[in-house]
Every structure is written in structure tokens, then in C-alpha cells.
Simulated assay, not measured.
Amino acid sequence: MSTSASATERRGIPAAAFVEDVQTYLSQLNLDANAALAFLQERLQQYRVVEMKLLAQQRDLQAKIPDIEKCLDVVATLQAKKGTGEAIVADFEVSEGIYARARVEEAESVCLWLGANVMLEYSCEEATVLLQKNLENAKASLEVLIADLQFLRDQVTITQVTIARVYNWDVHQRRLRQTAASTSES
């Protein structure tokens, strides 16, 4: 008998079926062992492709979170220095690997890169709110991504176990046929 995993899919990732009885599984799908193995190998490859995409997204988010935190720290520093008359001397990245030095006095606003070559000016308070929201969203997305990766790893494991079970069942069936053929010849 074949039973499905507790979830049928998670965010487009199909759940793998745990196979308790290989013969019933093959008859339900109307497949022979070789066709089932080919299907399972293909599914395993699909899981691997999705895993690579999710890992790339995870790396991107893990790089993005410290950048957002750094921006929040800079805005907080600017707000803390506001009204003190004290200037801040800072090096900032103009382009990848190109930095400029700036002397900032009484900053009322900051400019934030939003992506796609778009920069907008915000008050320090608005920038803090926006960056906090972006940080929360990035952390929440990372949590979901980690859960998706765990679900995917579980499906890979289930599929690998199923492949092994179908293969072993097929080997056992061949041996039974071989034994039956050799006893009928005697």
C-alpha cells in the first residue's frame, strides 16, 4: 500500500509518496519496475534543481539581511547625531569597489537604493520604518525558505528510499523467477 506524506505539496514542491508495498505501488501506477525507477529518478532530479534554486535564494537573503542591518545602524547613527552639531565623516560605497568620503552634518534625510537603479530620498524616520519592514520581511522569507528546504530534503530522502525499495523488490522478483525457472528445468 502507498501512503502519501502528510502534505501533498509545499509551495509548488510535490510531496513524495512513501511506499510500503512496492507491488501495490507499481500496480496502482500501472508501471513496471524500470519505468517506476525512471520516474523516481526524474523526480529526484527535479528535487535537486529546486534545491539549487532555493539554496541560491537562501544565500541572497543571508547576504541581504546584514546589509539592511548595516543601513539601519547608519540611519540610527545619523539620527543620534542630529541636533548635536557634530559632523560624521563616513566612507560610503558609490559603486562596487568604489568608495567616497563624506562629511555629514545635520542629516534630515537619507537616500536608499530600492533596486533596479532606483534611489529614493526618505526622512530618517521613514527610512528606519522602511528598513525595519524590509528586515522583518527578509527574515520571514528566510524562515520560510529554510522550512521549504527541510521539506524538500525530506522528499529527497523519501524518494531515495523508494528508489532503493523498488530496486531491491525488482532484484528479489528476478531471483524468484530465476529460481522458479531453474527448478522447472530440473
Rank of each mutant, 00 (worst) to 15 (best):
L120Y: 06
A107F: 04
L131F: 00
E86V: 12
Q58S: 11
E121A: 08
E106I: 01
A90Y: 06
S141L: 07
L142F: 03
Q79S: 12
V118L: 13
K64S: 12
R48K: 13
E126K: 09
E126I: 01
K81Q: 12
K133E: 14
I98V: 15
G85K: 05
E108L: 08
A63L: 14
I65R: 02
V74K: 06
K139E: 13
K70L: 12
L55P: 02
L72T: 00
V144N: 11
E93I: 01
C111N: 10
Q58G: 04
A140F: 08
D60H: 07
T77N: 12
Y122H: 10
Q62L: 09
L145P: 01
K139M: 09
Q46M: 09
V74N: 08
V110Y: 00
Y99S: 08
L114R: 07
D91Y: 13
G115Y: 06
T128L: 07
E126Y: 02
E125K: 08
Q62C: 03
E96M: 07
I88H: 00
Q57N: 14
I88D: 00
Y99A: 02
K139V: 13
G83M: 01
Q57I: 05
A100C: 05
Q79H: 03
Q46K: 11
K139I: 10
N137H: 09
V75F: 02
E136M: 06
S95G: 05
D60C: 02
L135Y: 08
C124A: 08
N117R: 13
Q132V: 03
A63Q: 14
E51W: 01
A102M: 06
N137L: 09
Y47N: 06
S141E: 15
I98C: 04
N117K: 14
A80T: 13
I65V: 14
K82R: 14
D91K: 15
A140K: 11
V118H: 08
Q62H: 05
A63H: 08
L112D: 02
L135H: 11
E136N: 13
G83F: 03
T128D: 07
M119V: 15
V50H: 05
S109G: 05
Q57W: 05
L54V: 05
C71T: 14
Q46C: 01
K70E: 11
K81H: 10
G83A: 07
E93M: 12
E105I: 09
D60W: 02
D60Y: 07
Q57K: 07
V49I: 14
A76N: 15
L72R: 10
L131Q: 00
E93S: 09
V75P: 00
V74A: 09
E51A: 10
R103N: 06
L130N: 06
G97L: 08
N134A: 14
V94F: 10
E86S: 13
E143W: 01
K82F: 09
V129Q: 13
Q62P: 02
V94M: 10
Q46I: 00
A140R: 08
T77W: 03
L114I: 09
E125Y: 05
R103D: 03
A100G: 01
A127Q: 00
E121S: 10
G85H: 07
L61T: 01
G85L: 07
